[in-house]
Design a protein around this nucleic acid. Structure first.
Length: 1039
RNA sequence: GGACAGUUAGCUCAGUGGUAGAGCAUCGCCUUCACACGGCGGGGGUCACAGGUUCAAGCCCUGUACUGUCCA
């Protein structure tokens, strides 16, 4: 064995042996214990979050496997529709290859499959390297043929049960990706914007008097999105708003468009917000859409699927384009035609085809320039808006159109800040607003009217009028009940609040996506647009009696990725077939995942599990925190703060890390900033720590669902721990004769048989081991890997290495053969048990050492992986031995403190005198003379009689016993007095507090007797100690 | 605006009623025959703030402040 632990060759060997040896597969006997891996996206490689969660899952898996369960950890990957499609498109662009559109659907999908193969392979290698004991024979992918069949099956069954519908609804539309997305994929970000106030003239020359007594012939609407006015179909006011009540039913003339639109009353309107008048654009705002439905307003779509104002095309051109689109797999071609062909002519020509932001500027400028109504009221007296009101429409991102040349002329003239009112613009004020963006593309989303597929989650009865429960009762409520009833337990518990809150406010789920990568929706349309749903075209034809001559076209859209991963726990086990695996491993035991996908995934698996299996998909949900960078920021590629777990395992130089983080950036301009931060966070790069140390770090940091700030120094600390274990094992092997101390060569054929006696130290460490075993079981049951790691670390380093191995040294070098045998046997067995206790977190080092130590402890198994996990035996707890060793530690600490503070070199033997020893003290001194002398490097130890005079000494206390180290004139009087004063001060302080407590009637009358007794004993003890100290202080002062 | 977390040593975090703990960092001594990726010792906290409950509060209750996350 080498002097220093070198993880790399060991990891490589065991990874291979375990997998090849079939150790990862279920044993086939025992109670089933199953974990379904949250399938990583095939978008690239695994990050620290995966490594963290996999560590937790593997620890659970190995623990249960060792504990005799029939353990399955099921691996796999997720096709991750949008995310993967984006990655592949970007790769094509970077490589200068033809784009998605140029390739066409089929060829593009070939490229994605190529990428998938590469990515899944990388992920598999990463999982293997981390030592994750997944059953590779069951590896799954969400687009495997069998899995795809299950996806179709669950869609068709839900459809047959009336829980899926297709309809034209306002959805969140991503104009960059050009697909619908679900509510969950929308991130609302607060951004700085403007609130524009526009004057909409009243029709037919109507006027009214405002609260300031002015006569007005217009009303002022406030909006954050001027460009949508092209699609306004009403203005709304609150029905009880005294200011406008009387105008309800009248009309306004929509500026620029010159359309008449009504003023309606609706209590959705917030009287306090803006002017209390809201323009209503049903086609491009969710609230307006609802309001429009209530008031039967026309829905006036003004945007294309790229969020440009619909263009200048003839009806004929539109028809052709739409047909072509429909043929070219453009699922919304027909809708666009319908909505747009009717409307485009109503949009003033100058705005047609403009990007929405460009259109916004143009519209504001034109309204400002519209002087037709500038004098449309009398008594204009308001002050212009103060400086700060500017025309800039606010912050933009690079995905939006930059300031165009249209405005170049204006900006070069450096215009003075305009004063308002100006034309039809009443005023413009700064305003913070929530901007909806796509979580993948970052693009500003557009509410957009399209035909999509939805899962009904909100109705009590079926939407199609058939008998039976709607989605609310059939899907949503059972998912709530699963957690409410305790059949699913969240750990930590508080996440169930989040879960309930979402389910209680749930919306129907839009499951269709206008993408290419994914499961094609199993719906077919005939020439009339009639839709048929079935498992395949043949089934549809058979079911509906459609002759071969009837042409059917399959829906071009694919499912939302989550509408395939929602059946992961059952489909990977063979559902819809009732396989043996499904019977055995469903429901799985625990789901380990992050809180960020409770809605996306956890809740939906519960829904589908309950619906199709009539049972929960997992019994526990262990929610882990997120792995963050040292400053607490979320790790992301664009921030350039991601770490590859294998770079921590193998180490990486600073330059290599910088290079890795700054290449292939979406926005190369951020590279210098990223480089700066990287150089600050990891000034020396990252030292290699090995898999075991990284895993242990994750375990130690996994504190009760809190986020984890990854700290490379911590990982290095646990690498040191590995080295400690390694060297302790070397020491053990050397001492039992299994390792040559000179050459490091392994010597076979060692036997520890024969008569043996166990020392106090032996019985103590065995006793402590039982306590550790009990703690380990508890921590696993509670998912407290941090406490588990701390217990193991503390036992191995601070008890076993620091004390127990030291205590055995004199025995090992002594001549008592039976005692020697007892120590050797204990040293080996405790180490062997410790290795098994540690194995679920640190699989490699424990296996490597166990191969040598196991046989010495009488183990004949091939691998530690399949050995039983240690269980506590309460009968071996030995409180007397524990008390003895505590006393011994106290004695040692006293001598060491004197050494440390008196600057006595550790190697120099010192004589020790004892005063005030009780009988028990004296007995222990006699018993432990050898140990103490060896460990504390004592020259001699002598117990003084009460009458004996002690020489000048430095003092330590153990209870009221005095441990004296004679200083023979060398004593630094001032230093020793200072030392004593320090001890005394602390003691006096404590004593004062405790006496005060005992003097209080409240305490004496109120506290339990046991507490009072304990307090009295403590005070007595402290008084005795204080007396001893005072005496010693007097003696030193007198020198 | 609502909900949920968090606030403890320089840093990262344990600690659910009985005198504050760990790792890392720091300071001092030591290349002692398993380990310098080591050993030994030291220093360092009025547990965010204000009330309350209790014989007793870092811990329970109420409120405030700040930070973070989620949902409107």
């Amino acid at each position: 064995m080498d002097k220093t632990f070198d993880p790399k060759p060991i990891e490589a060997r065991w990874c291979q042996d375990w997998e090849a040896g079939g150790c990862y597969q279920p044993s086939g006997s025992g109670t089933p214990y199953a974990i379904m891996i949250p399938p990583p996206n095939v978008t690239g490689t695994l990050h620290m979050g995966h490594a963290f969660q996999h560590t937790v899952m593997d620890a659970l898996t190995r623990y249960h496997r060792m504990s005799g369960f029939d353990t399955l950890w099921q691996p796999g990957t997720d096709h991750a529709g949008i995310a993967t499609q984006m990655v592949v498109e970007r790769n094509l662009k970077l490589a200068g290859e033809p784009s998605r559109a140029e390739l066409g659907r089929e060829k593009f999908l070939d490229k994605v499959w190529e990428w998938k193969k590469y990515s899944a392979g990388t992920i598999g290698q990463q999982i293997r390297r981390m030592g994750s004991s997944v059953d590779w024979t069951r590896e799954a992918f969400t687009m495997d043929p069998a899995y795809s069949k299950a996806v179709v099956e669950h869609f068709v069954r839900l459809h047959e049960d009336g829980l899926i519908y297709r309809g034209k609804r306002l959805v969140n539309w991503d104009p960059v990706l050009q697909t619908a997305i679900s509510d969950l994929e929308v991130v609302q970000e607060e951004e700085n914007g403007k609130l524009w106030h526009f004057r909409y003239p009243l029709a037919d020359g109507a006027t009214y008097t405002d609260s300031e007594g002015r006569t007005l012939n217009y009303i002022v609407v406030a909006t954050t999105r001027p460009e949508t006015m092209l699609g306004d179909t009403a203005v709304a006011v609150h029905p009880e708003d005294e200011r406008y009540k009387h105008l309800v039913g009248k009309q306004v003339l929509l500026p620029l468009c010159n359309r008449l639109i009504p003023i309606v009353a609706d209590d959705y309107v917030d009287r306090e917000f803006g002017t209390g008048c809201v323009k209503i654009t049903p086609a491009h705002d969710f609230n307006d859409y609802q309001l429009g439905q209530r008031h039967k307003l026309p829905v006036f779509n003004i945007f294309t699927r790229t969020a440009h104002v619909i263009g200048t095309v003839t009806d004929e051109e539109w028809t052709q384009a739409a047909d072509k689109n429909a043929e070219a797999a453009d699922g919304i071609g027909a809708i666009a035609r319908e909505a747009t062909a009717l409307n485009w002519r109503a949009i003033p020509e100058k705005y047609r085809g403009l990007d929405r932001i460009v259109a916004r500027k143009q519209i504001v400028a034109d309204l400002e320039a519209d002087t037709a109504y500038t004098n449309c009221h009398s008594g204009e007296s308001r002050n212009p808006e103060p400086a700060g009101a500017v025309l800039d429409p606010g912050v933009r991102r690079d995905d939006e159109v930059a300031e165009g040349s249209a405005n170049a002329a204006a900006s070069s003239a450096k215009p003075a800040k305009p004063a308002y009112p100006r034309g039809l613009v009443d005023k413009i004020i700064d305003h913070k607003l929530k901007v909806p963006r796509g979580d993948r593309s970052g693009a500003v989303l557009e509410p957009y009217l399209t035909d999509q597929w939805f899962v009904d989650l909100t109705r009590e009865t079926r939407h199609d009028g058939q008998p039976g429960n709607g989605g609310l009762l059939a899907i949503t409520k059972p998912a709530i009940d699963a957690v409410e009833s305790g059949r699913i337990r969240f750990v930590p518990d508080n996440w169930k609040t989040t879960y309930f809150h979402w389910l209680n406010n749930i919306q129907d789920w839009c499951i269709s996506r206008q993408l290419w990568w994914g499961h094609r929706i199993p719906a077919w349309y005939d020439a009339e647009g009639k839709v048929y749903v079935g498992r395949d075209e043949a089934e549809v034809r058979a079911k509906h009696g459609l002759a071969a001559g009837v042409s059917l076209k399959q829906d071009e859209d694919v499912f939302d990725t989550w509408f395939s991963s929602d059946i992961w726990p059952m489909a990977t086990l063979g559902w819809p077939d009732n396989t043996e695996a499904l019977k055995k491993y469903y429901p799985s035991s625990v789901l380990v995942t992050g809180f960020d996908i409770i809605f996306f995934w956890v809740a939906r698996m519960v829904m589908m599990g309950q619906y199709f299996m009539n049972d929960v998909p997992f019994k526990d949900v262990f929610i882990t925190g997120l792995v963050r960078d040292p400053e607490g920021n979320k790790m992301s590629k664009s921030k350039g703060n991601v770490l590859d777990p294998l770079d921590v395992v193998d180490g990486i130089t600073l330059d290599a890390l910088v290079a890795k983080r700054t290449t292939g950036l979406m926005n190369p301009a951020t590279a210098p900033k990223i480089e700066g931060k990287t150089r600050k966070d990891y000034p020396k790069g990252i030292e290699p720590v090995g898999v075991d140390a990284l895993r242990f770090t994750f375990a130690a940091l996994a504190t009760n669902g809190r986020d984890v700030r990854f700290d490379a120094a911590r990982a290095e600390g646990y690498r040191n721990f590995c080295n400690k274990i390694w060297n302790a094992s070397r020491f053990v092997l050397m001492n039992v004769g299994a390792l040559d101390p000179e050459t490091g060569a392994e010597l076979p054929g060692v036997s520890l048989d024969g008569e043996a006696t166990l020392s106090t130290a032996d019985r103590w460490i065995i006793s402590k081991l039982q306590r550790l075993e009990a703690e380990a079981a508890q921590h696993f049951a509670d998912y407290r890997f941090d406490l588990l790691a701390a217990s193991l670390y503390q036992f191995i380093w601070n008890e076993y290495c620091d004390w127990y191995l030291e205590l055995t040294k004199p025995v090992m070098q002594g001549s008592d053969e039976a005692a020697k045998r007892g120590a050797r046997r204990t040293v080996v067995r405790v180490l062997e048990v410790s290795l098994r206790l540690l194995h679920p977190i640190m699989p490699f080092i424990t296996e490597e050492i166990w191969q040598r130590v196991g046989p010495l402890a009488g183990k004949t198994g091939k691998t530690i992986m399949l050995e039983p996990y240690p269980v506590a035996n309460p009968e071996r707890i030995d409180e007397a031995a524990e008390a003895d060793v505590e006393w011994l530690k106290g004695f040692m600490l006293g001598v060491r403190q004197i050494r440390g503070e008196m600057d006595i070199p550790p190697g120099k033997p010192v004589p020790v005198l004892i005063q005030n020893a009780s009988e028990a003290d004296a007995e222990r001194i006699a018993r432990f003379t050898d140990s103490v002398s060896f460990l504390a490097r004592l020259e001699s130890i002598r117990v003084l009689a009460a009458s004996d005079e002690a020489p000048q000494s430095a003092t330590a206390l153990l209870g009221s016993m005095k441990i004296l180290v004679p200083m023979a004139g060398l004593i630094d009087k001032a230093a020793e007095l200072a030392r004593l004063a320090k001890l005394k001060a602390k003691l006096e302080n404590d004593l004062k507090m405790n006496e005060a407590r005992l003097a209080s009637d409240k305490f004496v009358n109120g506290a339990p007797a046991a507490v009072i007794d304990k307090e009295r004993a403590r005070v007595a003890q402290q008084k005795a100690e204080l007396a001893t100290l005072a005496e010693q202080e007097a003696r030193i002062s007198a020198l």
